[in-house]
């Protein structure tokens, strides 16, 4: 090893130690434990190797399967909507007008707010006795008021809305960065040729924006798979497990019920689902970033 490499290794070492200890080792340990039966509340059972048993249990656990479906539905609804809303915001913010900086700062507020705070805020807005939503729907007729967070369908919708409000502006930022790479000359040439705004959008903006839109979609997908804070604060996974998303279910099994082995199995499945999307992301986008870093 040359001297330069050794110096570089010293510089990288501290970061690697943290990542190894708190990310890489834990992942492998979760894998290992997913093949064991280990229940904290039943310590006399010890740590017993059970092969694929936890995985069979998971596949036949109706709550887990429902939880997986709920999570995927949550992702399928929120991620695309966030990208569409983000695109609208980005198109507006890409124009130059007075107060653009102010509007961009305002747009960042939902992104900056702690998720827990936005969860409490939406919980208040969806309140069954004095929430704004009920007032907008039914005015003073309090006997008609709904309890959205106590209804299996409306609770899912409420959590989706809270997520869309919180994270659309993040999608907008990624898309805005993409918009700014499209040269103005293309639009000027198209205008000279008499192309309408819609045709310009359809044939210049959208095709050139595809990488940014995909990137935003994948970022949001991977993040939405991890939804947790909103559920803990707004519904605690209820009512009747309607909002029992995968991360919440895994957390409950592992830490509330002490089922370390089974909880690890859930963790491994969540990991693979999100790895699938991450690989897609790295394939689509990562290559571009790396090409630039080698120049």
């Amino acid at each position: 090893m040359s001297r330069g490499y050794r110096v570089a290794a010293y510089y990288l070492l501290p970061s690697f130690v943290f990542v190894l200890l708190f990310s890489l080792y834990p992942i492998f340990e979760s894998f290992r434990l997913s093949f064991y039966r280990l229940i904290l509340t039943l310590p006399w059972l010890g740590q017993k190797f059970v092969g694929w048993e936890n995985y069979y249990d998971l596949a036949t656990d109706p709550v887990a399967m429902k939880s997986l479906l709920t999570t995927l539905l949550f992702v399928a609804v929120t991620a695309p909507l966030e990208v569409v809303l983000g695109l609208l915001m980005a198109l507006v913010l890409n124009e130059s007008f007075r107060g653009r900086a102010a509007l961009r700062a305002v747009m960042l507020i939902p992104w900056a707010i702690p998720t827990v705070v936005s969860a409490q805020m939406w919980r208040f807005i969806f309140n069954d006795r004095y929430g704004l939503v009920n007032f907008f729907l039914f005015g003073g007729q309090t006997h008609l008021y709904l309890a959205p967070l106590a209804d299996p369908y409306l609770a899912v919708v409420a959590i989706m809305l809270a997520d869309i409000w919180k994270t659309s502006s993040f999608a907008a930022l990624i898309i805005l960065a993409g918009l700014q790479t499209i040269p103005d000359e293309l639009y000027e040439a198209a205008s000279v040729d008499g192309a309408t705004s819609w045709r310009q959008f359809r044939h210049i903006t959208l095709p050139l924006l595809k990488p940014a839109l995909l990137l935003a979609l994948l970022f949001r997908t991977i993040d939405a798979l991890r939804v947790f804070d909103l559920v803990v604060v707004m519904t605690q996974g209820g009512p009747a497990d309607a909002t029992n998303v995968f991360q919440f279910y895994g957390y409950k099994k592992t830490f509330a019920e002490g089922m370390i082995g089974y909880g690890s199995t859930i963790a491994v499945v969540v990991f693979f689902v999100s790895l699938l999307f991450s690989l897609l992301y790295i394939r689509l986008i990562g290559a571009r970033i790396l090409q630039r870093s080698e120049r």
Partner: peptide
């Protein structure tokens, strides 16, 4: 690593 779901590493 930044894309790991928290639950995947939480136990260990």
């Amino acid at each position: 690593v930044s894309m790991f779901p928290q639950i995947a590493i939480a136990g260990p």
